[in-house]
Design a protein around this nucleic acid. Structure first.
Lengths: 344, 344
DNA sequence: CTGAAAGCGCTTACAG
DNA sequence: CTGAAAGCGCTTACAG
C-alpha cells in the first residue's frame, strides 16, 4: 500500500521566485521569457534563482491569459490501427519539437463518441485539431468546423473545402501498382475495393481504370469486387473472384489488410501466390513484409504525412495561411507476392 | 487558400450566460455543475439558456482554480509499437469514460526526450502519469517520482517500489508456454530471450527453467540465446541455435517479434516450422496470427492492462490508496507453429 | 438559495 | 528597465 496524500505539495509560483529575487513578479515573468525589456544581468540572476528553486511555469495559467494553450487535439478512429499509429507518431514528433502537446482521443467511428471528443477538445481550448481517422462520419467535418479552430484532416474519406487536408495521391499510386502487374504480363487484373462511397476507394479504382485504359486493356466489371478494408472482407471478396469462370491472374487491393485476407484465402484454397494469382496491396504496413509471401504494395509515407499535417497546423497557427490540400506520393514496393502469370 | 483570421471569435463565458439569465455568474457556475445550492427551477432555466447560447465551459480556467486539470500524461517509447498502441487504447477508453483527457508523448527511448516530455507534463499540470514504455531508461522512474503526481507503470522493465504498476504475470505464463511444448513431446527446448537485465526477460526465463524442473528435464545452458526483442535479433539468435551439434526441437521466444525473426530464419534455411522446429512467442500481436505458420503464443491482455492502469490511476486520484502492483494473467493461444517433434 | 469578494498563476498594457 | 494594476474565466468560502 502507498498513498498519494503526501503528493500534495505546493508548487512554486512566479511570486515565490519574485520574492526570492527581490523583484516584482511581472519582472520574473519577463525574465523567464527572455523579454528584452528586462536588464540582462537581473534577468540572468532571476533565471538562475528560478532554476535552483525548481520553478516550473504553469501552462494552465499562461493559457488562460494568452488564450493559446499550446495543445492540439488529435482524433483517430483507433490508435490500434497501425496506419494511424504511424501517422500519430509523425504528428507527435513535430508537435513536441515545437513545444505543443497533443491530446489523443479515439472515436471508434462511433458518432456519439466523436461528439464527446470534439466537445472535450473544445472545453480544453485546444489551438487546433488534427483528424487521422480512416472512417469518419460524414457529419463530422461540419461538426468540427463549428469549433472555430484550424483543422487538418489526414486521408479523410469525406473531403471538405472548409478544412485543410493531407492525402495520399491515390490515382498515380494506383496506376503504378497496376502498371507493375501489366508489366509482368498480366491481362486479367481485378480490383478489390473497400466499401462504396469512400473517397480513397473511388480514387484508387479510378487509377486502376486509367492504367487499364493506358494499356488498351478492356475494363471488365466482373473483376471488380469489394471488401471491408479488413482481412475478412478481403477473403470474402476473393471467394467471388475465384468463383468466376475465368478468375483474374492478379488482384490490386484497396489496402494491405484486404490483400492479406485475399492472400490467405487463395492459399487456403490450395492455390499459390504469386504462382496462380499475384496480389498487390496498398499502405505498406509493417505486417506486409511479414506475411507469406511478403506483399508487393504501395507504400504510404505514414509518418511524413503526420509530420506534414502538423506542419500545416503550425503554419495555420502562425500566419493563418496555407494551401488547402497537400497530396503526397506513394511508392511501389515490389516484394514476392507478384510474378508473371503462368497462363494468360 | 483559406485563412484562420476569421476564426478569432469570442467564446461565450459564464458571465455572458449570467447576464442573459439575470443572475450572478457564481450562480451560473453552480447551476451548470448541478450544485444543490441553487434553486431547481432557476438552475434548469440557466442550463437551458447556456445550452441555447452554445456555452462551453473553459476547462483551462477551471483547472487553474481547482488545481485539477482532468488530464493525464501518457508516455510511451513509440506509439507505432503495436503492443503499446493497444495499451494506450485501453487507457484512453477508461480516461475518456471518466472525462479525463490524455496527453500522449513518445520518448523514443531517448533520455533527452524523456526529460522534455516529463517537463511538459509537469508544466501542463497533469493529474497523473502513465508510462507504457517497453524500454524506459533506468533513471526515468526517479525522475518521474519527483513530480509529486501519481504514477502508474505498465510492464516496466525497472520495477520500483515508489510507483504503481500493472504487469503481466510472466512466470506462470511462461511455464504454460513451455509445458505446452513438453506436452507435445519436446525435450530439447530452447529459450530465446531479450537483452540481459530486462525484468520481463529474467522472469520469462525463470518460468522456462521452472517448467523444465517440474518436468525433471535438465537445464542445458547452450539452449539459451538472446535476441534484441525484434525480428533481426531473433534471426541471429536462431543462427546460433541452428549451429549447435544438436539443435533444439522447440524454441520459447521472449516475444512475438523475436519469434517471427526466428521463424523466418528457420524457413530461409530450408527447414520447416513446426516440422523441424516448433516456435512459441509471447504477446499475441495482431501479426502473430498472420505469419506463416500462424504463431502459437502467450496472449497478453493488452487493452485490459491499459484499462486497469487507468482504473488504478482513477483510484489514486480519488482515495489516493491502491495496492502497488497488479499482476495480470496471460493466456496460451495455440496455433500452427507448434507440433510434436519428428525426432527426439 | 443568492451574490459580492477573493483568488488560482500567469501576461500585458500602462505609468514612471 | 521596473512595478502596480487589471484581467483571463472560472470556483469557493463568506455573508446575507
Amino acid at each position: 500500500m502507498s498513498t498519494s496524500r503526501d503528493l500534495e505539495m505546493k508548487q512554486i509560483s512566479i511570486k515565490d521566485v519574485a520574492r526570492a529575487a527581490h523583484v516584482s513578479h511581472p519582472t520574473v515573468s519577463r525574465a523567464l521569457r527572455f523579454s528584452p525589456l528586462v536588464n540582462a544581468k537581473t534577468a540572468e540572476r532571476i533565471r538562475d534563482i528560478a532554476g535552483r528553486m525548481g520553478y516550473q511555469p504553469n501552462a494552465v495559467a499562461r493559457g488562460l491569459v494568452t488564450k493559446k494553450t499550446g495543445t492540439i487535439g488529435v482524433v483517430v478512429t483507433s490508435i490500434s490501427d497501425p496506419f494511424i499509429a504511424d501517422v500519430v507518431s509523425g504528428i507527435e514528433e513535430v508537435a513536441n519539437d515545437h513545444a505543443y502537446s497533443v491530446f489523443l482521443a479515439n472515436s471508434n467511428a462511433d458518432p456519439a463518441r466523436e461528439i464527446k471528443v470534439v466537445q472535450s477538445f473544445q472545453e480544453r481550448r485546444v489551438d487546433g485539431i488534427l483528424v487521422a481517422a480512416s472512417r469518419v462520419g460524414a457529419l463530422y467535418v461540419p461538426l468540427l468546423s463549428r469549433l472555430r479552430v484550424p483543422i487538418v484532416l489526414i486521408n479523410n474519406q469525406h473531403p471538405d473545402e472548409f478544412v485543410h487536408s493531407v492525402v495520399i495521391d491515390n490515382v498515380p499510386a494506383s496506376i503504378s501498382a497496376v502498371q507493375h502487374l501489366i508489366g509482368l504480363g498480366h491481362r486479367r487484373i481485378a480490383y478489390m475495393g473497400d466499401q462504396f462511397g469512400f473517397h480513397s476507394d473511388t480514387e484508387r479504382f479510378a487509377g486502376y481504370r486509367q492504367a487499364l485504359t493506358l494499356a488498351d486493356y478492356p475494363f471488365l466489371p466482373e473483376l471488380v469486387v469489394h471488401g471491408d478494408g479488413k482481412p475478412e472482407g478481403g477473403g470474402q471478396a476473393m471467394d467471388k473472384l475465384l468463383a468466376l469462370p475465368a478468375p483474374p491472374t492478379a488482384v490490386f487491393c484497396y489496402n494491405d489488410m484486404t490483400a492479406i485476407g485475399a492472400l490467405r484465402r487463395i492459399r487456403s484454397r490450395g492455390l499459390s501466390v504469386p504462382g496462380d494469382i499475384s496480389i498487390v496491396g496498398f499502405d505498406d504496413l509493417f505486417i506486409a513484409s511479414y506475411v507469406d509471401p511478403p506483399l508487393t504494395t504501395v507504400r504510404q509515407p505514414k509518418q511524413p504525412m503526420g509530420r506534414m499535417a502538423m506542419e500545416i497546423m503550425l503554419k495555420l497557427l502562425s500566419d493563418g495561411q496555407h494551401e488547402t490540400i497537400i497530396r503526397m506520393q506513394g511508392e511501389l514496393v515490389v516484394r514476392a507476392s507478384t510474378a508473371p502469370p503462368k497462363r494468360n
